[in-house]
Nucleic acid binder design. Structure first.
Length: 494
RNA sequence: CGGGGCGUGGCGCAGCUGGUAGCGCAUCUGGUUUGGGACCAGAGGGUCGCACGUUCGAAUCGUGUCGCCCCGACCA
């Protein structure tokens, strides 16, 4: 009996997302409210994100360290905005060793307070700067409403923390790391992102400025993929992080922090996947290719499996992330559906005919523009010589990676609206349910921002960086008609 | 925190005018199959979220409680 099809994306995006997460065996709800069990298939994606980002951090001079999970409650209170921002979502430990603690400990929602406490001990003079540090950790925020990968109570992330001698140096660091995130999003996640600055209302609690990369999901809602903050001297003043400068005077250090989380896995799912299930960019796919042997009888079985095993061993030895699916209680068709659901970029089919011809059939997860178009209703099937299989897989993986970015970019541009004439027009856009990224002028006033949020549910995702702005800057604020201070992107967001 | 829904084999569900639990998928065994979701035969597996109450008798009725999901508010 065939398993029922996935809910269609177009019918119920939210249900579709949950089904992909569960049926692709990425993650499931834990017995604890709002927490997530990440299964190996999902964790494998995170491991590749970690591995590749970590290399980029090291290449830009950062080192990894680790700080404690529990933070004395008093640390949290030292920076006024920070405590106000996080107080409602703290989980607090009140007992230990069977006794009530003198001072409650909070489970870190982020580690600024702990890390800058330590930095303060480590820094005396300007020669101790800069500190360029990162930690891979779990954090916990008692969110009112949670969603697998996108907003869980506990999540895995990396948080970079740096301390600098000058304001300019800190600003440059914050922007540099935003650039690292943008490069990672495009090159690995195949996700086009718009980088820019958050408006004050969306700024990190305690930051001078918050930078962001914003991606568009397939329901045209925005998702913040990563964030980078210029913390100014707010935390160094709160935690007494001082140094003696080149001129002999004692000064406060300048800090930045930046992070991405397991939310990126959710972002991947919502960006690329389709009605057949998960679609993974090859560079972040725990398994890039799966070999499915096909045979009718025992004789064929031996021939085909021998050939398939040889291919598998060869690819494995060359470092390919490849799997062989030799299960004998399942028909090839059933296997195809399963691996498609799980987002494997390339399927390698090998049957008796292929063995005889020294070929295999490769089926990419999504159609590639670079290859001959498939017949209507069919998948693209590529016949490949066994002798050149590894090169072909490498080429196809690259083509698929590029195709995903191309498709996502085309989709975002098709749903990006510039030159909206009136606020009424924008209200219609967000009332239609289709949604979009709307580029428009804004007077810079939080009041007009709040008004739009209330009336349309759309918020300012960011003030885009120069390269993402419209060629002609809007003159007027779309909401009030006053002179525009910035061009901004309005969108509904996760 | 407000509104709604749901807790019954691994998963999805039925049973709820009370009478001691059933279906589909999955699993196991045997056989036939296998180039797009195989079929036949047999088998195993459940203190019906938890507690108290009503009753001769509770998955079913009542009260309480715990948990999960969805929508909203909230959210670097």
């Amino acid at each position: 009996m065939a398993e029922e099809k996935l809910t269609k994306r177009s019918e119920d995006f939210s249900a579709w997302y949950n089904e992909v997460v569960e049926r692709a065996q990425l993650a499931e709800h834990s017995p604890v409210r709002g927490c997530m069990v990440i299964r190996p298939n999902g964790y494998g994606i995170w491991e590749l994100i970690q591995k590749n980002l970590d290399k980029m951090f090291k290449d830009t001079g950062h080192e990894n360290a680790y700080f404690p999970l529990l933070i004395p409650q008093s640390f949290m209170s030292k920076e006024a905005e920070h405590v106000e921002g996080f107080a409602p979502e703290l989980a607090v430990v009140t007992h230990g060793g069977g006794k009530e603690l003198e001072e409650p400990l909070v489970i870190r929602p982020t580690s600024e307070t702990m890390i800058y406490t330590m930095f303060a001990k480590w820094v005396q003079g300007y020669r101790d700067l800069p500190i360029l540090m990162n930690q891979w950790a779990n954090v916990m925020r008692w969110e009112m409403r949670t969603r697998l990968f996108l907003r869980t109570a506990e999540f895995l992330w990396q948080e970079g923390h740096t301390a600098h001698e000058t304001e300019a140096e800190a600003e440059s660091e914050a922007l540099k790391m935003l650039g690292v995130y943008r490069t990672f999003a495009e090159d690995f996640m195949a996700t086009p992102v718009i980088s820019g600055t958050k408006s004050d209302s969306e700024r990190f609690a305690g930051a001078l400025r918050t930078y962001t990369i914003e991606a568009m999901m397939q329901d045209n809602k925005a998702l913040q993929d990563g964030t980078s903050h210029n913390l100014g001297q707010n935390f160094s003043k709160a935690f007494d992080l001082k140094f003696q400068g080149r001129d002999g005077t004692v000064q406060y250090a300048w800090n930045t922090s930046w992070g991405v989380s397991t939310r990126l896995v959710g972002s991947l799912i919502m960006t690329h996947s389709d009605d057949d299930g998960l679609v993974l960019p090859p560079r972040l796919a725990p398994t890039v290719a799966v070999i499915v042997p096909i045979f009718k009888n025992d004789e064929e079985r031996v021939t085909v499996l021998t050939a398939a095993d040889a291919i598998y061993a060869d690819m494995k030895s060359k470092g390919f992330r490849v799997k062989i699916d030799a299960r004998d209680n399942m028909s090839p068709g059933a296997k195809y559906y399963e691996w498609e659901m799980r987002g494997i970029p390339l399927r390698i089919e090998i049957g008796p005919k292929d063995v005889a011809n020294n070929t295999v059939v490769i089926v990419p997860r999504i159609p590639l523009d670079t290859r001959e178009a498939p017949k209507p209703g069919r998948k693209q099937k590529l016949f490949v010589e066994v002798a050149t299989l590894c090169d072909s897989v490498e080429d196809l993986a690259k083509e698929l990676q590029a195709q995903l970015l191309k498709n996502a970019l085309a989709r975002r541009e098709a749903n990006t609206i510039r030159g909206v004439k009136s606020y009424g027009e924008m209200k219609e856009i967000f009332a239609s349910g289709e949604g979009a990224f709307v580029f428009a002028g804004w007077n810079g006033d939080p009041t007009s921002e709040a008004k739009v949020k209330e009336e349309t549910k759309a918020t300012i995702r960011c003030i885009p960086n120069l390269e993402f702005r419209s060629s002609t800057a809007p003159e007027k604020c779309l909401v009030t008609g006053e002179p525009a201070k910035h061009e901004v992107i309005w969108a509904k967001a996760y």
